[in-house]
Design a binder for these strands. Structure first.
Lengths: 110, 110
DNA sequence: TCTTATACATAATACTCTTATGTATTGTTG
DNA sequence: CAACAATACATAAGAGTATTATGTATAAGA
């Protein structure tokens, strides 16, 4: 796991992009997918994830579908049309940021 | 300028690396150098920079040399021996973070 | 049966940065 | 030469984002 400070500001981007690539997902599933994709390096905490999902939903970037699995509730999140646009923008913005940072830090990626 | 949230957690890394590459520098000079290197995309604010410099100094990663330029004070910052080690570590950590993020976000840099 | 994993959620706290403010000197331009 | 911009330091209030702690509850495995 990296210094968790670096993750700040990237959580929304991660959530939006993972939903874009994997479609309908629920909170816990997102934490597991990100853990898997990052080979255990990014562990999303629930205290950060759920408020972020609620915020993105309130902004109209995500919508939800509630499903009952036995007696347990499962809340699926999907990108809305504006959400898809923003997802793309956020990823572009992140790539730009990385390009700027690699110049400033004089490092080469890959 | 990017979304400033992305910058969070990277300020110490930027300061340490710029000092490593350019040697003795004073606060205002650091803001200008970073602005130049990033082609105006990263604008360090004084409210963030000075507390960071003071903190790094308190941690023993930086030391200072005060010079009088006419009637104006100029405070130069330099890396200490531990500071050089940490500078390297922070940059490595950042590169690792980028590699992880590019995998999670499925993007290619450059 | 006990522990772990699944699955949601909120609250207190910590950390980092922005914005606003303050002080003062030096250089530039109309 | 007066006014403004740039240089140069610094702190404080506030905002934003995440961590840690806590709470509730079901399902699966040893």
């Amino acid at each position: 796991m990296h210094s968790p400070e670096l993750l700040k500001g990237t959580l929304q981007t991660i959530v939006l992009k993972v939903l874009k690539d994997h479609g309908k997902m629920y909170g816990y599933e997102i934490t597991q997918r990100v853990k898997e994709l990052s080979e255990g390096r990014i562990l999303l905490t629930e205290g950060a994830l759920y408020p972020t999902l609620h915020k993105l939903e309130a902004e109209g970037l995500l919508k939800t579908e509630i499903v009952n699995i036995g007696k347990r509730i499962r809340k699926y999140y999907l990108l809305t049309a504006p959400g898809k646009v923003i997802a793309k923008d956020r990823v572009s913005e992140f790539v730009d940021f990385i390009n700027t940072m690699t110049t400033v830090l004089q490092v080469k990626i890959e």
